[in-house]
Write a protein that binds this DNA or RNA. Structure first.
Lengths: 234, 234
DNA sequence: TGGCCCAGCTTGTATATACAAGTTGGATCG
DNA sequence: CGATCCAACTTGTATATACAAGCTGGGCCA
């Protein structure tokens, strides 16, 4: 689990950007300077910078430099990263309430994705959580996954309160990919109640399918999102 | 405007994937084979593959290979790419109706983004289009931009019907970045009418801000999207 | 003054190479 | 037979280097 050079450069630059050591709009040290300072080649430094650009921390400008971008105000949850990771970098106070702790339930039928037969043969692990930003309920999140022997999920609280982090720490399972579909729908009664809104009000409905490093383990998720006060950015 | 090597590899691989020469789920030739075939180094080939991965055409698997992913069914419009580009790769029949051709209007007040004073000094160019998939209206798209001397936009039909392509062809203006915010809202009367739905029904509302290669030119856009029959993927 | 050009900076593309890390299937050994 | 190991493949990280392409500011010239 040793950190690669480019990951270290990425982490340190990102930290300094978030701390404000590099001001918004200003240029980072040039790639040549960075490679000299870190004792790495420019190619390696550029790998770190490419990641920072993908994640929206900097903007690369050919012939000019790499510039620090303004931080996002909205909740960026369209990336693969989880809820806690994303909001940890914003100024919003975050809280999670577990509505249904991980437990076995029958596989929902109909399901919003086509289920491989191999999944139906295993018990279905389900959980439901409500996410708050600044004490307002904003996201109602559910997950379903085939229980391939993940008993600790039902027995212990999550590592740092993070579902994905627990999977990684306890079972070495990494998220390798994600697909999602977005819809605007009218809130049904239970959703409206959880999000403290009126039934029928428009909510953003996201269905997701995560692929993992464990063959055969696919995680399905849905999110109902109240976008009245917090838009979703990307 | 010569094509770079990695762009050629990207274009050719993408074409063969879309044509079905490489089947879904199968592995591409290994990076070593590709570099031999193209007479390029592995580093260059990997640049093309990284782009294909970002755009969701392939999935890289360490130690195994690069695998063709299944094409998306939904409309993927969360990327920077324009409407026509995105839907051109799906199986949906696409049509565009221009509701308001490009013309000068007063800057809307209030505007959904904070407007720099420099923009208000220039006339505001506005256009509105309705997008159809399979003959169903699915997106109501508007754009606002400061007219920095872009008179051909008001005088000629777009190149290939594409707004962005016209900007590139006529003025050499490239899109360098995009930020967007998503909300679920209730359709107001004109929106509902255009999308042939009932007023108050939930629609996906996207606000966008494009940055361009021309300093001072920022393009603002909104999209109302009926997700009843076509989800938005990413 | 005003316009042009160019040196010197920046990032972008590309080569050639080496080794690390993950996967797989077959050979080997108990 | 079954488990283990390993060679040969895959992709990932990293070095060192070169030149192309884009940008900027200062100096030169008309």
């Amino acid at each position: 689990m040793a950190e690669y050079h480019y990951q270290r450069v990425y982490r340190e630059l990102k930290q300094r950007i978030l701390q404000g050591d590099y001001e918004v709009g200003s240029a980072l040290p040039s790639e040549n300077e960075l490679s000299l300072n870190y004792g790495l080649t420019r190619v390696t430094v550029r790998q770190a910078l490419a990641t920072l650009e993908r994640e929206g921390y900097i903007e690369k400008q050919h012939g000019r430099g790499n510039f620090v971008k303004a931080p996002r105000e909205s909740l960026n949850l369209l990336s693969v990263r989880g809820f806690s990771e994303v909001l940890g970098e914003t100024n919003h106070a975050v809280r999670t309430r577990i509505l249904s702790p991980p437990a076995h339930v029958p596989w929902p039928d109909p399901f919003f994705y086509e289920l491989p037969a191999a999944h139906l043969a295993k018990p279905c692990l389900n959980l439901q959580r409500l996410r708050f930003a600044d004490e307002n309920p904003v996201m109602l999140e559910s997950a379903w996954l085939p229980d391939t022997g993940l008993s600790r999920l039902r027995q212990e609280p999550f590592v740092d309160g993070s579902f994905f982090k627990s999977l990684r720490r306890w079972y070495g399972i990494e998220i390798t990919g994600m697909e999602q579909h977005l819809r605007a729908v009218a809130a049904d009664a239970p959703t409206a109640k959880a999000l403290q809104m009126r039934k029928g009000n428009p909510v953003l409905f996201i269905t997701r399918q995560y692929t993992t490093s464990q063959p055969g383990l696919v995680i399905y998720g849905t999110i109902y999102c109240d976008t009245t006060h917090y838009a979703i950015g990307s």
